[in-house]
Amino acid sequence: MLKRTRIAAVLASTMCTVAVALPNVAQAAARSEALPSKSEWLADVAPVASDLRDYLGHRLAGVPAGQKPAIVLDIDNTSLATHYDPGRPVQAILDAVRYGQQHGAAVLFASYRDADSHDSTVRELTSAGYTVDGLCLKPADGSPGKAEVKLGCRKKYEGEGYTLIADVGNRSTDFEGGHYEKGFKLPDYDGALS
């Protein structure tokens, strides 16, 4: 009898765990269904990338001597097409960033990825065609939150002497707190594309 009671308790506990997990699975599926196709997403990204490229053309035309202009980029679904094509660049963003780099801008990244992913993230970005002049990630000893981490990264880069002329991301947390001249927000579809 005691054995049956333990089995029943284990089964009840497992059922509770499954019941708790099901809404999370359903929520993830609903978010995925809310996303547009890859071609629609790229069409939504294109005007932002075009605006970035135009801005860089004007902004980098007269950089004062000694100034270190830089572009700060989020990684997932901004620099890399993580949801739609893992490991591949968002080509329109890469093209704009390459233009900026060719005209004197450093390429810096600010991400909420874990600190222990530094080396693999650099490999992923360089394999996708990006130059990585700086990579700032979530601290290993915990994190105050996405917005605070991204702001801390921008402040760190400013402390290194960079003038952050453009900040590119797809979430509001990529822009909170300022410390950049102009922001370029890609679509996140009400948070469905993180």
Rank of each mutant, 00 (worst) to 15 (best):
L73Y: 04
K185D: 09
L108C: 07
T78K: 02
Y84G: 03
G178Y: 12
T131K: 13
R31F: 06
D167T: 05
G134H: 05
A46M: 04
I71W: 00
R123V: 04
L193I: 03
G178E: 12
T131Q: 14
C136V: 03
K68W: 06
D95Q: 10
A8S: 11
V90Y: 05
S32D: 14
S194H: 15
G57M: 07
A8M: 13
V20M: 14
K185C: 08
K38D: 07
A21I: 12
R113I: 10
E176Q: 12
M1Y: 08
E176G: 08
G129W: 01
K185E: 11
R59I: 02
D133Q: 13
R123E: 13
V90H: 09
C153W: 00
D119T: 14
Q91V: 12
G142Q: 10
S194W: 14
P69W: 08
G169T: 02
L2F: 14
A70T: 08
V168E: 06
I71H: 00
A46Q: 13
D74W: 01
T5Y: 12
R113H: 09
R154H: 07
L56Q: 02
K155L: 12
E158I: 04
E160V: 08
F184V: 00
T5M: 14
L56S: 06
Y55T: 05
R154Y: 01
A96S: 13
A26S: 11
P64V: 09
K68F: 04
E160G: 05
V20T: 13
Y162G: 07
A81D: 07
I7L: 15
A49P: 04
Q101V: 00
S37W: 11
S111I: 01
A43V: 03
A34F: 05
A70I: 07
K155S: 07
W41D: 04
D190Q: 15
G62L: 07
A92T: 12
L108Y: 00
L137E: 03
A34E: 10
L80K: 08
L73E: 02
T126G: 11
H58P: 05
F184D: 01
E176F: 06
L73N: 02
G145K: 11
Y84D: 09
S143C: 09
E158M: 07
E160C: 05
V168A: 02
T17L: 15
E176T: 13
R59A: 08
G152H: 06
D141W: 10
A140Q: 13
A70N: 04
